[in-house]
Simulated assay, not measured.
Amino acid sequence: MRSAPRLAALSTAALLVGGLAACSESSAAAGDEAEASGDSAPVTIEHAFGTTTIESTPERVATVNWANHEVPLALGVVPVGMAAANFGDDDGNGLLPWVEERLEELGADAPVLFDETDGIDFEAVADTDPDVILAGYSGLTQEDYDTLSEIAPVVAYPVAPWATPWREMIEVNAAGMGMAEEGEELVADIEREIADTVAEHPQLEGTSTMFLTHVDTTDLSEVSFCTPFDTRSAFFEDLGLSTPESVASVSTDSEQFSGTVTAERIDVFDDVDVIVTYGDQALVDALNADPLLSQIPAVQNGAIVLLPDTPPGTAANPTPLAISWVLEDYVSMLAEAADEAQ
């Protein structure tokens, strides 16, 4: 793996996600790596839509929705088809940089890219003739699941749409490939890398951090934020940060990924040390100029981590290849913000 280049400013750094492209460098073909696994078929996987049984080790792996393809790629398997990036793709080739880099490491061309701008392209998925379809982190509906199941066995999300933590995303997708053991090893590798990186920044420990989202600088009458069930906020715990009580108190529904508070109630965020959000200096200026939002401790102290809406900012949602790609820089930026909060 290569480390991400040092990013100079908050507006160009800070992301989280993804993971280690480590386990298996030797094969760029799904069949080769799947057959190397010690796991035995059939495999039965429980998920939100019931159970899926995969009778034999898949040789042709397809993925749909955001980032599921990063699991087979991290394990050395190139999918026969996967979703094209439809957010944060700064060069328009349908591949985020950490995915493009991994394909180069494997010496592989890009697989078939499914255009999901208007939803899953079922015909394109069927044309790749997959043995399994991975969607452990996804927004599948029952109808989507039923249609995909007519093509091949589907590994769906365990509990709720877009709520699968990165560890479980790896575990369920790897199990669907017949590579459960390799998936566990990948998780352990990423955990070690995170722990080693975070250990260099003790000021992160316990710092209460909120992910501010959907900020409209022309209308600051409401404040929206990600709940702990959103994978971006959940990743804060991996980095030693804590969830503000103000955020946790409104987050009782496991399918509620965001919350909103009116500006008149802004004093509820008196326990927020650090804010992470998408935006630039204009956003900071707007927060400082607002008579209510400027009272948030993180705003008063300038403890704000700004993410661009292009790479690396798009990696704020932790996925198996993006975590390593941005980890050192993201943690450094969070540490700088934590220093400001002191």
Rank of each mutant, 00 (worst) to 15 (best):
R2P: 13
R2Q: 14
L10R: 07
G18S: 00
L20H: 05
C23Y: 13
C23Q: 00
S27P: 15
A34S: 02
A41Q: 11
I45K: 05
H47A: 00
T57P: 03
R60A: 06
P72A: 02
V77G: 11
M82D: 08
N86P: 12
G88F: 01
D90Y: 08
D90G: 08
D91F: 06
E100F: 14
R102T: 02
L106F: 04
A108D: 10
T117I: 01
D118T: 15
D129V: 09
I133N: 07
L134W: 11
G136A: 05
E143A: 11
T147V: 05
A152C: 14
A152W: 12
P153K: 15
A156L: 08
P161T: 08
W162K: 14
A163R: 04
I170P: 01
V172R: 00
N173M: 04
M177N: 02
G178E: 01
E181C: 00
V187I: 07
A188T: 03
E191L: 12
T197K: 03
V198L: 00
V198I: 03
Q203S: 01
F211G: 05
T218D: 14
S224Y: 12
P228F: 14
A234R: 06
F236W: 12
E237T: 07
L239N: 07
P244W: 03
V247W: 00
F257T: 11
S258P: 08
A263L: 01
I275T: 14
I275S: 12
L283E: 01
V284S: 09
D290R: 10
P291V: 04
Q295M: 11
A303F: 02
L306D: 01
D309I: 12
D309Q: 11
T310D: 09
N317Y: 11
P320D: 06
L321V: 01
A322E: 09
S324W: 05
W325A: 09
V326C: 05
M333S: 15
L334K: 04
A335M: 07
E336Q: 14
